[in-house]
């Protein structure tokens, strides 16, 4: 009997310790890993960009190498989310990709192309990239670079709350976004509420300006 009670209490303590450890893992450790993984991804991108001569880029009919799942395609800056807010955008939206940064929906348009460049990111855990997502407002800049061009998108609508199955939000011309025809759009998605998954938060933006990287950073980043 005593052995039984003792074993049972030990199991309870073990379960409790397990839960505490798991919370520590989610709140702290995934963030540490995401920080180093995203920094490494940005590093890889920047190294690749410095290795290829920029001078060859401004040809108008530039052919982009196809995106490879899990590989970086751009770096995103959102001044509203913080001056130092900077995350790599990788191809794909699987869990392994989103651990290292933001994920580009594979079936959506390429960066700066006609259509919808749709990107998903974690609201919480794994570095909390989109923690302050509800603070985004109409007119906010979303700046991306692919090594040759700076793309400045401006938010038109959001944050818009929807259900997880609403795949129309990443359509080339998203329903409910207010866009009335084809254009160069960008969609960000994350989960809502902060720690839940019952809904999704969406913002839509359109391409406002582009400039070659040789002309320096866009003003939107320093305002």
């Amino acid at each position: 009997m005593r052995l039984l009670v003792r074993t049972f209490s030990e199991l309870c303590i073990t379960a409790g310790a397990l839960v505490v450890l798991f919370v520590a893992y989610l709140l702290y450790w995934t963030g540490v890993q995401a920080d180093s993984a995203s920094a490494a991804q940005i590093d890889t991108l920047q190294r690749a960009w410095t290795d290829t001569p920029v001078a060859a880029a401004p040809a108008p009919a530039r052919v982009r190498t196809p995106y490879v799942t899990g590989k970086g395609i751009a770096v995103m800056y959102v001044p509203r989310l913080g001056r130092d807010w900077k995350w790599p955008v990788l191809e794909g939206t699987g869990p392994d990709v989103l651990k290292q940064g933001l994920g580009h929906y594979t079936r959506t348009a390429g960066l700066g192309d006609t259509g919808n460049f749709a990107v998903a990111g974690h609201r919480r855990t794994h570095g909390d990239p989109f923690k302050d997502f509800p603070r985004l407002r109409r007119g906010d800049a979303i700046v991306l670079t692919d090594g040759t061009t700076w793309f400045t998108y401006r938010i038109d609508r959001g944050p818009y709350r929807t259900v997880p199955g609403d795949t129309a939000v990443v359509d080339p011309v998203p329903r409910k976004s207010g866009f009335d025809g084809p254009g160069r759009y960008l969609t960000l998605t994350t989960c809502d509420p902060e720690w839940g998954s019952s809904h999704r938060l969406i913002v839509w933006a359109h391409l406002d300006a582009t400039r070659p990287v040789t002309d320096g950073r866009p003003q939107a980043l320093d305002s």
């Binding site: 450890l21 939206t93 989103l98 929906y105 990111g121 795949t167 939000v169 998605t189 720690w195 839940g196």
Partner: peptide, 27 residues
């Protein structure tokens, strides 16, 4: 034990919990 948990068990268990669904197509 903590190492095994952090390295293998928790990463496996995490997608089973709800706070990582951030996409709209359930991938």
């Amino acid at each position: 034990v903590v190492y095994v948990l952090f390295q293998y068990v928790f990463p496996w268990a995490e997608p089973l919990l709800p706070f990582n669904d951030v996409t709209v197509d359930g991938q």
